[in-house]
């Protein structure tokens, strides 16, 4: 499902997010091509940080780059950057523009497939029956449809380690609960409209909960602190309740 980036892409656009961040837009809609450009740019930026670079947030169609204007300006003053630009925003703008242009050469031909064990239904998935009823399916059919697809992690956000996934079948799409539950346990696998996701930490939420994974998605003591990363492909593997405690996450490195 993932192809290396091919040529012929729309030009990127940049705009300020306040006086110390810049948003680089790679497209107007969510698709895999835009996603791959977002990922390629993020990878390049992180391996080639400029002086004053602080952090970046890749999202569905954009990457936002945070910088320290003081450090950027000092570099500008010392002539490390070409031109006599005084505005930190404009200095960063021209650095990033150069990076984006250079991206044409970058191909993403590696990705990871992460297999996440899920115990569907029962106490772990109180809404499985409701999702089945809503879509005129049997609970076992919901499990099959949910677990046979490949999902692309477009971005991580909302909570630490929470993946925004693309690729769920419309056959099991179900609206949110009208009033959210006060607390959804960590590891809960849910459906909201045509999206599916896993809650890394316990939080209130209105998603239809169909199962739970024993895997930890938020790993504060590890680097990176998230099991999943933008660009990963994930698969849900159904497991019986007795395996819940002896699970294993499998990660396969994929090279084309």
């Amino acid at each position: 499902m993932l192809q290396p980036i091919s040529g012929g892409r729309a030009k990127s656009q940049m705009k300020p997010l306040g006086d110390s961040a810049i948003l680089v837009q790679f497209g107007a809609e969510i698709n895999e091509d835009v996603h791959l450009r977002v990922k390629a740019f993020t990878d390049y930026l992180e391996t080639h940080p400029f002086a004053g670079f602080l952090d970046c947030i890749p999202a569905f169609t954009s990457v936002t780059v945070f910088y320290n204007p003081l450090v950027v300006r000092r570099q500008g003053d010392s002539g490390s950057f070409s031109g006599k630009e005084r505005s930190p925003y404009k200095i960063v703008h021209s650095i990033l523009e150069e990076m984006v242009t250079g991206l044409e050469e970058t191909n993403t031909d590696k990705w990871r497939v992460v297999e996440i064990p899920v115990c569907y239904g029962g106490e772990f998935g109180p809404d499985l029956e409701a999702v089945a009823r809503h879509n005129h399916l049997l609970p076992s059919e919901v499990i099959t449809i949910h677990s046979e697809a490949d999902y692309l992690v477009y971005m991580i956000g909302f909570a630490p380690g929470f993946p925004y996934l693309g690729g769920m079948s419309e056959k099991i799409a179900t609206p949110r609960h009208t009033s959210p539950r006060l607390s959804i346990p960590a590891g809960s696998v849910g459906i909201a409209c045509s999206q599916t996701g896993v809650y890394p930490i316990s939080t209130p939420g209105g998603w239809q909960i169909i199962g739970r994974t024993p895997a930890d998605l938020f790993l504060p003591d590890e680097n990176p602190p998230s099991l999943l990363q933008s660009g990963d492909v994930i698969r849900f593997k159904p497991i019986p309740p007795e395996e819940y405690k002896i699970y294993k996450v499998r990660i396969y490195e994929h090279k084309s």
Binding site: T42, L54, D55, C56, I57, P58, F66, I156, G157, F158, A159, P160, G161, F162, P200, F218, P224, P225, S226, Q229, S230
Partner: peptide
């Protein structure tokens, strides 16, 4: 806490 926002870890 900078450098981990891409993992959803807030600042």
């Amino acid at each position: 806490r900078y450098g981990f926002q891409k993992y959803g870890v807030i600042v």
